[in-house]
């Protein structure tokens, strides 16, 4: 398969006052073009370090990070990022905030075209009519929608989402999950989603990668077949329940609460399991 993002054997340590602190050790993540991979793992296991690697904000000590076959050596303009903190600029309107990347990235769009695209994206996420508002006038969920538009305005090859819905209430979060599916249908992207929420990971991604505790390595990979629009009902099926069980078990292993010997999808097969589903075991 042609992978757009290819992360192989990455090791990285932060240099702290008390010596090197290894955060990643043997990280492998592959994302095919148009794919959407969710990365889950225990708190502080190095998930955010992974986003900085893909964005080119950090160069790993060992191993390679490739996008489109070329090794990442620094920031490039074909990345869009959204964080848990929406970091909108308070002195700009929502429309101006969304257009910010166009001021940095070389673009063929004229100012008017850029504006039209920003308006289209804002309408897509349900923020029509809020273009002239200031960020302080928007709710948390709306700020995240605007932040998402900003991450997409320059048609990035890779969309990096670092727990973008982590600070939202449950209802708003589910709303945004559905918005994400709508956006992906209209504006296809290749995405990496960092999250703490297992339901979010199986609802949004077509592959879930579980990282081990620090230093993080790729512990488990689960494919979620059936891309395209999903509905919240899909989260309440036996298949979804079983996937969540497997993932929860993997997280417990990663946290060191369950012995590693118990690793594996040894749960009974649930009814209604689609034939094409693959639950991949631990990578060697």
């Amino acid at each position: 398969m042609d992978n757009l993002i290819n992360i192989k054997g990455v090791r990285h340590a932060y240099h702290t006052a008390t010596g090197p602190l290894p955060v990643l050790d043997g990280l492998d993540v592959q994302v095919p073009e148009g794919g959407f991979v969710a990365v889950v793992g225990p708190s502080g296991c190095g998930k955010s370090t992974l986003t900085r690697l893909i964005a080119g904000l950090l160069i790993p000590d060992e191993g390679t990070v490739q996008v489109h076959g070329s090794r990442i050596t620094g920031p490039r303009s074909n990345v869009g990022m959204a964080f848990q903190n929406p970091v909108l600029l308070e002195w700009r309107t929502i429309l101006e905030n969304v257009m910010l990347p166009l001021e940095i990235v070389p673009t063929k769009l004229s100012k008017a075209e850029g504006q039209a695209r920003a308006r289209k994206l804002l309408a897509l996420v349900g923020l029509e009519g809020f273009e002239a508002k200031r960020p302080s006038e928007l709710s948390g969920g709306m700020k995240q929608r605007a932040s998402l538009c900003r991450a997409l305005i320059h048609k990035p090859e890779v969309l990096i989402l670092d727990e973008p819905f982590g600070a939202l209430d449950a209802f708003t979060r589910e709303d945004l999950w559905q918005t994400m599916h709508k956006v992906k249908a209209e504006e296809p992207f290749t995405g990496v989603l960092i999250t703490h929420d297992l339901r979010e990971s199986i609802f949004l991604a077509d592959q879930v990668v579980v990282l081990s505790g620090r230093p993080a390595r790729t512990q488990f990979v689960m494919d979620i077949p059936g891309t395209g629009l999903r509905t919240l009902d899909d989260l309440y099926t036996p298949v979804a329940a079983e996937r969540l069980n497997v993932l929860r078990h993997q997280i417990e292993v990663a946290q060191g609460r369950v012995p590693a010997a118990a690793v594996g999808p040894d749960l009974p097969e649930g009814p209604g399991r689609p034939a094409n589903e693959t639950v991949t075991g631990p990578l060697s």
Partner: peptide, 18 residues
């Protein structure tokens, strides 16, 4: 300045002065 503000622009290849 929160690091995310910097990252938003740095990840696009913005210079220090931008």
């Amino acid at each position: 300045l929160e690091p995310e503000y910097r990252d938003i622009l740095r990840s696009l290849g913005a210079s220090q002065s931008q």
